[in-house]
């Protein structure tokens, strides 16, 4: 059912696509933000290309983080990995106190400038929410269900694939969604170490005192974040509804 907020999001998506394909249409709107003769639309690269690169960086980092975090969470919730469980929880807490800028800056001497340190920082930073949620999902399963699965003669592997993971999936997906939203914003900081992301537009704006650049870069990232957040949430609800049947 297309309600008001769905319509609003569809509208935001259309405006975003239009802006990325034909940015000059929006020139009059942004014109008041710049001094005379200054460029209004980012002119040192294509906004569409930067957006796609930004999304690619986030997608690669989140995919890698999801795989590793899920594998680790499965490992430490098996009986053979139980010794690691308490420490894993503390590490998630400690890891989240590390500022993203620090992680990014410290990755530069090891990996050089460009996309690599950004990917590493996004990967490390994205691990935490996914791992945390996967741990929560896998450790809070109803004992009666687990008992029933064991009683039905399922092996450990079968229980994991057919019972535990499907039941924990909504919480895990929520972690991935959180990770995507954080990564979208953090990837902009990657441009301080010369990664090709939308942060480039914002930083160019800060350096040349061009507010229109800052606003367009910021708004593209913010719109992407809102749309992806809501899209992933809708996908989660659909999945949950299908599993509920």
């Amino acid at each position: 059912m297309p309600n008001l907020s769905t319509l609003f999001r569809a509208g935001a998506f259309l405006v975003l696509v239009a802006f990325l394909l034909q940015p000059q249409w929006f020139e009059p709107l942004l014109r008041p933000l710049v001094q005379e003769n200054a460029p209004v639309i980012y002119n040192q690269g294509s906004l569409l290309q930067l957006t796609l690169l930004h999304l690619r960086t986030v997608a690669v980092a989140t995919a890698a983080a999801s795989l590793v975090a899920l594998a680790l969470a499965i490992l430490v919730t098996r009986s053979s990995g139980a010794e690691f469980l308490p420490l894993s929880r503390s590490l998630v807490n400690i890891g989240q106190t590390f500022p993203p800028v620090a992680v990014l800056a410290l990755a530069v001497p090891i990996f050089g400038f460009g996309e690599k340190p950004t990917l590493i920082a996004l990967f490390l930073y994205g691990l935490l929410p996914i791992f945390e949620n996967a741990l929560t999902g896998l450790t809070t399963l109803p004992p009666s269900v687990m008992e029933a699965a064991r009683g039905a003669g399922m092996t450990g592997g079968q229980r994991l694939l057919k019972v535990e993971l499907p039941l924990a999936m909504p919480v895990i997906l929520a972690g991935i969604r959180l990770s995507v939203v954080i990564s979208l914003a953090t990837a902009t900081i990657g441009s301080t170490v010369a990664a090709k992301t939308l942060g480039e537009v914002i930083i160019a704006g800060l350096q040349s005192n061009n507010l229109a650049f800052v606003v367009q870069g910021g708004l593209i990232v913010a719109t992407l974040a809102v749309l992806l957040h809501d899209g992933l949430q809708a996908a989660e609800r659909k999945l949950a509804a299908r599993m509920g049947r």
């Binding site: 900081i189 914002i202 704006g205 800060l206 800052v214 870069g217």
Partner: peptide, 17 residues
């Protein structure tokens, strides 16, 4: 919630004006 989605460098920059 919407404010949280604006990347930090952009929000810092937007407030300059």
């Amino acid at each position: 919630n919407a404010i949280q989605t604006i990347p930090s460098i952009a929000l810092f920059g937007i407030l300059i004006a």
